[in-house]
Design a protein around this nucleic acid. Sequence first.
DNA 1: CATCAAGGCCAC
DNA 2: GTGGCCTTGATG
Length: 690
Amino acid sequence: MSSEGEAVKVEGGHISVTTISMSGPESSNGQFSYSSSGVRISVSSEPQDEDSTDAEISKIDFTQHQYEVNMRNKKKRSSGQCDQAKEQERPMSWEGELSDSEMVIDTSTNNVDENSSSLDLQSSRDSIDTLRNVSIKTEPLKTELFHTMEDQRVLDLKYTVPLQSHQRSLSMNRISVLTDSNSLLARRPSSPSHYDAHPEVQNLTIKKEQLSGGYYGPERQSTVRELKSEPTSSVDKLLGLHGSPLMGRLPRVQSSASTDSAVHSMYTHSVYSSPSASPRPSRHYTPSLSRNNSDASHSSCYSYSSEFSPTHSPVQSRHPHVVYREAAVFPASPAHDEDADGTDDRLHHHQGISRQQLINSPCPICGDKISGFHYGIFSCESCKGFFKRTVQNRKNYMCLRGGNCPVTVATRKKCPACRFDKCLGCGMKLEAIREDRTRGGRSTYQCSYTLSGAASTGSLLSAHAPATLRHASSLTCVNGPGSYNRGESSNSRLTPDIPPLLQEIMDVEHLWQYNESELSRMSKSSSSPSANPLLAASGITAQNSSADFLADLCNIADHRLYKIVKWCKSLPLFKNISIDDQICLLINSWCELLVLSCCYRGVSTPGEVRVGGGRGITLQQSAKYGLTPCIERMLSFTDHLRRLRVDRYEYVALKFFMQVGKEMLNPANKSKDGEGPSFNLLMELLRGDH
DNA sequence: CATCAAGGCCAC
DNA sequence: GTGGCCTTGATG
C-alpha cells in the first residue's frame, strides 16, 4: 500500500514543500501501513526592516573613513557606548549550553501551534510511558501536526511512535524541516538584519542579479508561524499536488520571483563541487594583496564531497596542502561565471574598493574598526580575538534569545553565540585557526580579499532591493563567498528546486520502511504474533504488560536502530565520513537522546531545565542530575559537527536520527553514559557487522 | 626588509 | 572573557 501526498507551495516569499508518504506493506486485514513520512521544506523570505537599514546607512559619515588605519591605536570607547551597552544588557549566554540548533524539543508555551507542540512532547513522553506502563497513547494522524520550532534555527525533526488513525496504525517517521536561512545554516548563519551598513554601500553599483541576498526582519516570526500553523492539507489543496511519494518525484517547485530561493540557495553551496563550480585560478584582488591570494587556490572549503574529510579538521594545520577555492564577492554574478578575473574585476570595477577602503570600513561583525584581514575576512581586533578564543577553546555558546541578537560594538559582549554565528556568517573560517598554534607565517586556507558576507551582500544591498534578493543574499553570505554554483545562470538561481542533498536523503527514504520479509522475520521473533511487527501496529495497547512485551519493544528498537543506521549510512555525507566520525556522531547523539529522555522523565524540574527554546541545561544542573558526562559528550558532538562542517542537511539527518532514536529508546534500560542495550548493536551496525 | 596574518600576553 | 598590543615567521 502506498498513499502519498505532497505539496509545494510558493506563496509570497516562502516556499513550503510538503511530502507525505505513507507506505509499507499493508497488513493482511489492510488496516495499517508501517511508515509514513512527511517532509516540509519551508523557506521564508521576509524583508528586513528597511527603515532601520536605511537609517543605518544614512548614519554613516563616509568621509570619516578616509583616514589611514593605525592598528596600534588604542580604541577609545565612548561612555555613550557603555551606557548603551548597559541599557541593552541582556542575559548572557552561557558557555556549554547547547545551541538552539542542538536542541530539538521546544517547550515554549507560546508556540503558535500548541497542539502540535504538545503532541510532540506528548508523543515523546508517550514513548517513554509506553516503555514504563506498557501502554501507548494514540493520536490521530493530522497533517497539520507538522510543525516547526519557535526558534527557526532549529530544524525540527520529529518522530512519533506509531500513531493510529482509526483502524490505521501508522508508524510515522516525520521529518519536519523548516528552513529559513537561519534554520538552514546552523552555525553558519547570522542574521543579516544585524549587519551593519557599510560605507562601501555608497560606492557600489550592484546589479540586482548579482545579488542574492536578504534580510530577515521582524516579520520572520510571523511568517514562520504562518507556516507552522499552516495545515499541510491546505497546502495540498492550494496546489492540488498529490500522488508522488518522494521528493524525488516532486514537481519542480514553482518558481516565483519572490522565492528565489532559499531552497535553491541553501543547497547550491552544497554542490559547488560540481563541474559548474570547478575551481578557477585564484586572482589577486589588488597587486598589494597578491600575496594573500597567492596561496589561495581552489577547492571548496565548505563542500559536502569527500573534500570534507572528517579527518581533516577545519582547524588549520600549519601547512595544509588543502587549498581552497577563491572566494568571490559576488558569487552569484552571472557576469562572473566565466570570468577568471571576476573577483578582482568586480572589486575594482563594480566596487572600486581598495584594501585601504576595506580596512577603513567598519567590522562586518560588530561595526568596530577593522584592524586587518583575520581568518578570512576583514574584521576588527576584538572579533578576531573572539573568534580565535571561541574556536581554540572550543566554546559552545547558545543564544538565549533565538539567535537574533544584534551584534554591535556595544552589544557584542552580550551574546557570544550570535557573535560567533555572525563571525561564521560573515565568512570567518574555522580552518584559519591553527591547530598547532604556531605563530607567524602565511596562512594557506582560502584567503582572498573580499568583503565579508555582510559587507558584500547584505548591507550592500539597497534596502529597497526586492526582499527575495536580499533574502538570497543572506544565504550566500552565510555560506561564504564563492559558495554559489557558478555555473548557474541568474535565472536558474532564482528557480527553487529540490536541494540535491535533500533529494539524496529522500532517495533513501525507503530504508525506513519495512518489507514483507522483514515484518515476517520480526513477527517470528516476537513474543506473540500479535505483539509484533511493530507491536501489531494497530493496537499497541499491549495490555499483557510483561517481560515479553518489553522484549518486543527492545526488538523493535533494535530493528528500528538497524534501519536508522542503515539509513544514516546511506546518507550522502554520512557515508562519506570515516567510520570513527560516524561512530562519534551517533554515539554522541545517543547521549543527547539520553539527556532529553532524562528531561522528559522529570529528572529535571520545571524552571530549571527547559529543553529547547529555554535555558537549556546548565552544567551545574547536569552535574546535579549526574548528566555531566552526557552534556560533555553532547558538547563534543556539537564540536564534532562543527569541525566536520556538517551542514544543515547532514544535521537534519542526524537530528532525525536522534529523534527517532529518542522515541525508540527505553530510558529505563539506558545507563547514564549513553550506553544501553542497543549500543553494541549500534556499534556493530556502524562497523558493518550486519 | 617590509608586510601581515597568525598566536600570545596581559591589563581590565 | 575581552580586547589591545606584541611577537612570530612565511612570503615577496
